[in-house]
């Protein structure tokens, strides 16, 4: 590979190629991709390779706008969403594209996410309300929540499950059973939700070996998150909650969680004392 690229509008992609079961070991293949428009993204470059240079390249993507979280991969050793990163962010013009580490490779840039979603399911990522199970099973009305209560967890609900935090986490690198930043973050997302009453059940899952306390706040998950979710913040809050529960301080009025009430049924009549509408001054328009 040349030391510097000659053409400023050409980007050199060094792409990780590996097909388990067929290839002995991974190799890197080099492609030259032209800058088709100023805002061209890494994903567009990979699609260009797929369409024009090498149709055998496997890359997973769907929405192309940082919403679905399918195209997470590593470029020059840093975790990114391919659709969310412009080629012009790499002034050297050279990109080493690899799949996310800490995941098994399906093919080339695609990684197997089974374990990731398995860990996500383990922490019960849905509203639990053992206090009134009937309402959860047959909902009558919505739960009432104040805007301040929404802000308590809204940031954590922006997670798109791309898996970059798990690939960056140093604990995951040495402990395959560690739940990972995404699952631990999800615990805080639901435990901090005023509509949820399942804190004890989730803490039972995470306050265990390979759980919460294997995190030593490296902050890599927060640094790499493409949606600004801040998993490290969420995990520290869960640790605090776990400590409060262990010391039974969660029963103090200051730390006690108030469950959001179910909205009252709508009132049948309008407020009394409202005068009736005045007479029409223009005739009603004919029904068309």
């Amino acid at each position: 590979m040349s030391a510097r690229k000659k053409d400023p509008n050409t980007y050199i992609f060094k792409v990780f190629r590996y097909q388990p079961g067929k290839d002995e070991k991974p190799r890197f293949q080099t492609y030259e991709v032209p800058l088709l428009h100023p805002g061209m993204t890494v994903l567009e470059g990979l699609i260009y390779i797929k369409e024009n240079l090498d149709p055998t390249l496997a890359v997973r993507y769907s929405c192309r706008m940082a919403v679905c979280g399918s195209c997470a991969l590593y470029v020059n050793g840093k975790g990114i969403l391919a659709c969310h990163t412009a080629l012009r962010e790499f002034p050297s013009g050279k990109l080493t594209v690899e799949p996310m580490p800490n995941y098994p490779v399906v093919k080339d840039l695609m990684t197997r996410m089974d374990e990731f979603f398995d860990h996500h399911r383990q922490v019960k990522p849905y509203l639990l309300r053992p206090q009134d199970r009937a309402e959860i099973e047959n909902p009558t009305r919505e739960f009432l929540q104040l805007p301040e209560q929404l802000e308590e967890f809204l940031q954590f609900s922006y997670c798109i499950k791309c898996g970059l935090c798990v690939s960056a986490c140093p604990t995951v690198a040495t402990d395959p059973d560690f739940l990972g930043p995404q699952a631990l973050m999800t615990v805080a997302r639901y435990n901090r939700d005023s509509r949820d009453g399942g804190t004890v059940y989730r803490l039972k899952v995470v306050d265990a070996p390979h759980g919460l306390w294997n995190c030593h706040f490296a902050g890599a998950c927060t640094e790499v998150c493409p949606k600004g979710v801040d998993p490290a913040l969420a995990i520290q809050y869960t640790k605090r909650e776990s400590v409060l529960h262990a010391l039974h301080l969660n029963k103090l009025p200051r730390f006690r969680k108030k469950l959001a009430p179910v909205a009252p049924p709508p009132k049948p009549n309008r407020r009394p004392g409202i005068p009736p509408a005045p007479e029409r001054t223009v005739p009603e328009a004919p029904a068309s």
Binding site: Y18, P20, K25, P26, G77, K78, G79, P99, P101, N102, Y103, P104, V105, L164, S167, A168, C169, P170, V172, A173, T174, P176, H216, F217, A218, G219, A220, C221, E223, V224
Partner: peptide, 29 residues
């Protein structure tokens, strides 16, 4: 190679390097 788990290398590699990450490694060591 199938798994691509980083192992001990993952304590310093991977993601964008922030100082807390190195403190993590030193803390474990």
């Amino acid at each position: 190679m199938k798994d691509r788990r980083l192992g001990i290398r993952g304590w310093i590699y991977g993601g964008k390097h922030n100082p807390e990450r190195f403190l993590y490694t030193l803390h474990r060591l």
